[in-house]
């Protein structure tokens, strides 16, 4: 195929074209990757070296590298706490949202019931409501939930689910776009399979669990990956929902470190390297996931991007 597509230019022009192409690809690669390399190398340098000299070739000499910023970041700057909180948050959101969304996707894609189209339209409509519009009223809602967190029946007196894991996780237990993705996929499966199960007396949740889900590995993976990636990086909601370091996700924690409200202010000497070490640790889990599941991430974008 590639053969038929190639144009027959005179050899010299063809050579020039190809050279330009390679140069373009390499420039793109440098632009995309350089900030990561710079971040990684700067985080390994000892503080004095990076701040005094800035960019030098010495930075790339492994003999000058030190893991001290990482140790400081992990122990003293609470990165370990942030990572733990983020892991709990991201895993909970991923498991819950994937489950609820696939159940709803199954129902909307394969069952018939009154008001189905209306309800599905409602789900689609919520897809266009972004978190940046809802985070403020949602914050008030969580703060004033009746009978929770010391609140009375009118939601006054206490602080509801503010500053709790439940408050952090609850608004993210379902994702409308994931429902849509699951529904589209489930509609392509043959109907005979579940009918056979139904005749055998299998209930709907069992059909979902035993027949539909085992056939849906790829789409489950895509949804779970994007749920995890999104909640790992989440910033606005954890920022407004947490008032103590205990509940800081990695993004909120890094923000508070950068602007001095964390516990790092007294370590100005290592400050920059420690911040960069924290950033590397915030990025690494996603990098590993991406290396392991690159194909699924790319497919996911093609699916969600163009419906």
């Amino acid at each position: 195929m590639a053969q038929t597509r190639r144009l027959r230019l005179p050899p010299r022009e063809e050579l020039l074209y190809r050279t330009l192409l390679v140069i373009g690809i390499l420039i793109g690669l440098v632009i995309a990757a350089l900030p990561f390399l710079w971040m990684a190398v700067s985080s390994l340098g000892t503080a004095g070296m990076v701040i005094r000299i800035g960019f030098t070739w010495d930075m790339f000499n492994p003999l000058n590298w030190s893991l001290e910023p990482y140790i400081v970041a992990w122990k003293m700057a609470s990165i370990s706490k942030y990572i733990r909180t983020t892991t709990i948050y991201a895993v909970a959101v991923t498991v819950l949202a994937t489950t609820t969304s696939s159940l709803a996707g199954y129902v909307f894609g394969r069952l018939r019931f009154p008001a189905r189209d209306f309800l599905f339209g409602l789900v689609l409509a919520t897809m266009m409501i972004p978190g940046s519009v809802t985070f403020l009223p949602l914050f008030i809602l969580m703060l004033r939930l009746p009978l929770l967190g010391g609140n009375d029946i009118f939601g006054a007196g206490g602080h509801g689910l503010y500053n709790s894991y439940a408050g952090l996780i609850l608004p993210n237990v379902v994702s409308a776009s994931s429902i849509f993705l699951f529904r589209q996929f489930f509609r392509t499966l043959p109907k005979d399979l579940e009918d056979a199960a139904r005749i055998d007396g299998c209930s709907e949740p069992m059909i979902w669990l035993r027949v539909i889900m085992p056939l849906s590995g790829p789409v489950v993976t895509v949804v779970a990956l994007f749920q995890f990636q999104g909640s790992w990086n989440a910033f606005v909601w954890p920022l407004v929902m947490s008032s103590s370091e205990r509940l800081y996700t990695i993004s909120v924690g890094m923000y508070s470190l950068a602007y001095g409200s964390g516990s790092l202010t007294s370590m100005a000497e290592l400050f920059q390297s420690v911040l960069l070490a924290g950033s590397v640790m915030a990025v690494l889990p996603i990098l590993f996931l991406f290396i392991a599941f690159q194909r699924q991430f790319v497919q996911g974008i093609a699916l969600t991007g163009l419906k």
């Binding site: 990695i250 924290g278 590397v280």
Partner: peptide, 18 residues
């Protein structure tokens, strides 16, 4: 393609610091 795409997936806060 993966290298070009990686910045999209990473934390905005972490990369903002970088």
């Amino acid at each position: 393609r993966g290298a070009y795409y990686l910045p999209v997936l990473t934390s905005t806060i972490a990369m903002g610091i970088a």
